[in-house]
Amino acid sequence: MGRLASSQRMSQPSKRQYYSLFGFLTRHIQAAGFSWRRLWRAPLASLMTIGVIGIALCLPLVLFVLVQNAQMLTTNLDHRGQVNLFLESSLTETELNEIFQALQIDVAVANFHYISPEQGLEDLQRETGLSDILQTLPNNPLPGVIEVTPAPEVIQQDRLQSFSQSLQQLPYVASAKLDMQWLQRLNYIVNVAQQAVNALLVLLSLAVLLIVSNTIRLATQNRRQEIIVCKLIGAHNRFVRRPFLYSGIWYGLLGGLVAWGFVTGLLWWLYAPMQRLVNSYYLEYHFTGLSWTTTLLLIGLSVGLGWLGSLIAVNRQIAAMEPT
């Protein structure tokens, strides 16, 4: 039995009105509006709480975006999965054609690109600016190179290693090089960073929870008198705690928006130097900022933490405040 059986006179709103969607919405909108106005009664205190939440969430988020970019960068590299064939020196035209034909009929080869020793030397001079030193060499020390791109199935089925070995068997090929080890290490580093970001996110979410919880706990104590008066005139714990829960939600929402602002600003600031870093490795890559999904998840997380933090603070506090 949740309510009293009789005693509801004509003056009371009917149960239907109380439990209707309209009544439900009215009470929530009233509580939400009330907490919103109350938030700005003490703007400095509210802004400080919101700022702390924003900064706490901003830190793991910036790292998250950086790690995400690093991850995409390494997968991009992964998919390049190129095998470089270093040819024996001074091959004739027919010998070269022999290799080309062998590559053309190999179904595992998607395409290939020949770089002659002369072209290789030219590229090296252009890209490194070592032309003075290179010009002092008596003859071209570079071998001819064929860059072989494997068919997608080879990469998908993880057969790069055996593919590289089979190319090694071709005539006139001095060595086939598939340098994956550094990529793998980079992958491991990115994984470690990702785990660290996850741990940081959990820790700082906990911090947000505690901040909101403490703020709301203080608010309930400051408004002890009001809580007791409300209970005296027939308010349930639900009614009393609703504005506090909305306060938590507002803190979370605004904190999340502040975090979003900080992250966007920081990434904008970091964009140029990071792009320079990537370009220095001759990589074609454009940094991505916060996606819409991530932004929505951030706001959702932040609102959820605000709600949960205030729920933790409010439940026991309000139950303990009874009129005497």
Binding site: L4, I233, H236
Partner: peptide
């Protein structure tokens, strides 16, 4: 027989 949770319903039929 009224529980603590039912007290608000009772108080709504009185003015204090």
């Amino acid at each position: 027989r009224l529980t603590k949770q039912q007290a608000p319903w009772l108080r709504r039929c009185m003015g204090i």
